[in-house]
Design a protein around this nucleic acid. Structure first.
Length: 202
DNA sequence: TCAGCGATTAACT
DNA sequence: GTTAATCGCTGAA
């Protein structure tokens, strides 16, 4: 962690408005430290999933069991799962215990450990394709299913504030991706990204 | 038990 | 623009 960085405290994740947290996470830095290898990047794209109120959420109909159990806990944990049998997606659990809200991190802009990330992605030069998608950034940061349920206030994975502030005029919002099955809920503009950032997913 | 499918990506035509 | 890769969860038998 660089000198001016401040790790976000658990209180940050307990906020009751998952949309508000999604906005505030833009410009923050997601970091992992695996076997002494530090990798990190600025969060440039997020999506809000508002638990039981939101049909697009994994926790829509369901009880606190199986893979969604972690979302019912108090905020500040990581919710990691496998999609299409091959891609790992990373979410931040928010809100207080009993309310399964989460924020999906869809894209980051690499800042630390670029060499390590390139190696993990089997790439040779820094291009947006390194981290401009939810399955890509997890691979670059070395996040896998073993990160399920880890605390974001620990020392293996965390989110820190480096003082970067994204003005509201630099944030764009839109419809979430890949959740067409959710009917009307799919139309809610709960996807947020930093305007013009080349690392935002397509 | 077991078939079907998803908050995706990369490699095709 | 289309499609294969690949696995844990879900719902139906």
């Amino acid at each position: 962690m660089s000198p001016k960085a401040v790790k976000l405290p658990q209180a940050f994740y307990l906020h009751s408005d998952v949309v508000e947290i999604s906005l505030r996470l833009l410009g923050k830095v997601l970091a992992t430290n695996i076997d002494g290898k530090l990798t990190a990047g600025i969060i440039v794209e997020t999506e809000a999933y508002a638990g039981h109120r939101d049909r697009a959420s994994h926790a829509w109909k369901g009880s606190p069991t199986g893979r969604t159990e972690i979302m019912y806990r108090a905020g500040g944990l990581s919710y990691v799962y496998l999609i299409y049998g091959m891609h790992v997606l990373f979410n931040v659990v928010t809100n207080k215990a009993g309310i399964p809200d989460a924020v999906l991190i869809r894209a980051i802009e690499p800042t630390d450990g670029v060499e390590v990330m390139l190696d993990r992605r089997k790439m040779t030069s820094l291009k947006p394709a390194l981290t401009n998608g939810p399955g890509k950034l997890t691979k670059a940061l070395g996040i896998d299913l073993s990160f399920y349920g880890l605390s974001l206030t620990g020392d293996k994975i965390w989110i820190e504030d480096r003082g970067l502030r994204i003005p509201e005029s630099e944030i764009e919002s839109g419809v979430r991706i890949g959740v067409d099955y959710a009917g009307e809920h799919a139309k809610r503009p709960w996807r947020f990204w930093i305007k013009g950032n080349p690392f935002v997913s397509k």
